[in-house]
């Protein structure tokens, strides 16, 4: 197990370097350091000297990938890519173009992101599985048919519509919850409810359909027939046997997203005024803040890799036949 984990961690290093390189290349294809400087300095009275000073101050006055003027190792180390990327591997993200420490920002924003993402994940999972099992229970009946239709309808509606409709009806028209905002501690509860509700509802269609497919496949297997032959109730068959055996594909989809919950949701956070990592990323992209974009992509990659490793671990936990070697 340890050897397996070590190997996976070592595999992650070249992946992360590749992700970094790709982010770097994509970012600088669209933006030059001069563009970044102009955006930061504003639209007025920006002189070429000011641009040079900004680049020098922020370390963007070096060559991008290879420094021809340098010698030896410095050809690679005295570049924008190396100077801005190497420290990330020890989770030192440096400062954004606005001068704020990225690590501190991430720590501060992780909480609000989790406050939304975690309940959405847990409640969503419960609701979707329950709804899927219900459809499986009533499979081949009008309830199943209309359940599937409902799922397809829910899937077909844009996520943005749920947000706007939720805000309009629940917050504006019925005045039941604040339309947007955030607060720490217990005061934050009213602000969380609406985005959680909207996100859960928006996810029911896709999630339930997916789980229904899994359970339908399981329910046709021999062990289910055996369980029924033993006289077990349909409910027990579903919840005790089908659910347990259907866990592997569920885990594939669920465990992998657990670490990425920290990253928040780009649109939900923006519309509901949640000061999380999703809105941080959106702001950074709009402001062409490469330091933040790069840090968030790196963090996302790390968390995704962690998620994949956790998924592998969970396989062996759910299914004893699976051995990690």
């Amino acid at each position: 197990m340890f050897a397996y984990l070590l190997r996976r961690v070592l595999y992650a290093i070249p992946i992360l370097i590749g992700v970094n390189l790709l982010t770097f290349a994509l970012f600088f294809v669209v933006n030059t350091p001069d563009d970044m400087a102009r955006l930061q300095l504003g639209a007025k009275h920006v002189t070429p000297e000011a641009i040079e000073r900004w680049k020098s101050e922020h370390g963007y006055d070096k060559p991008l990938l290879i420094n021809q003027a340098a010698e030896g190792r410095a050809q690679f180390t005295d570049t924008i890519f190396f100077q801005h990327s190497a420290a990330m591997f020890v989770f030192e993200f440096g400062k954004g173009d606005d001068g704020r420490d990225i690590g501190t920002e991430i720590r501060n924003r992780m909480g609000p992101s989790l406050a939304i993402a975690l309940p959405v994940f847990v409640i969503g999972l419960l609701v979707n599985i329950t709804f899927a099992l219900l459809m499986v229970f009533f499979r081949a009946t009008y309830l199943d048919l209309w359940g599937v239709v409902l799922c397809v309808v829910l899937m077909s509606i844009s996520g943005l519509f749920y947000i706007i409709a939720g805000q309009y009806f629940i917050a504006s028209l019925w005045k039941l919850l604040p339309i947007s905002g955030f607060a720490g501690g217990i005061n934050g509860l009213p602000f969380i409810l609406l985005p959680v509700l909207v996100s859960v509802v928006a996810g029911i269609g896709g999630g339930s359909r997916w789980y229904r497919t899994i359970f339908i496949e399981e329910i046709g297997k021999d062990y289910v027939r055996t369980a029924r032959a033993k006289g077990l109730s349909e409910l027990r068959v579903l919840f005790r046997h089908v659910l347990k055996n259907g866990m592997i594909p569920i885990l594939t989809g669920a465990v992998v997203v657990i670490p990425t919950l920290f990253m928040g949701s780009l649109i939900t956070e923006s519309f509901f005024g949640i000061p999380g990592l999703g809105s941080y990323t959106i702001d950074a992209i709009q402001a062409q803040d490469f330091a933040v974009v790069r840090a968030m992509v790196f963090l996302g990659s790390v968390l995704y890799i962690v998620g994949l490793i956790l998924t592998d671990l969970s396989y062996s936990w759910v299914d004893p036949r699976v051995r990690l070697q």
């Binding site: 409640i123 039941l176 509860l189 009213p190």
Partner: peptide
């Protein structure tokens, strides 16, 4: 969901409107 909703509403409802963005 109902309990969560009601609790949150009551939390704000004690002193503010339910939809107040300035709780407390």
């Amino acid at each position: 969901a109902t309990t969560l909703f009601t609790t949150a509403s009551l939390l704000t409802g004690c002193s503010d409107s339910w939809n107040s963005p300035y709780p407390g």
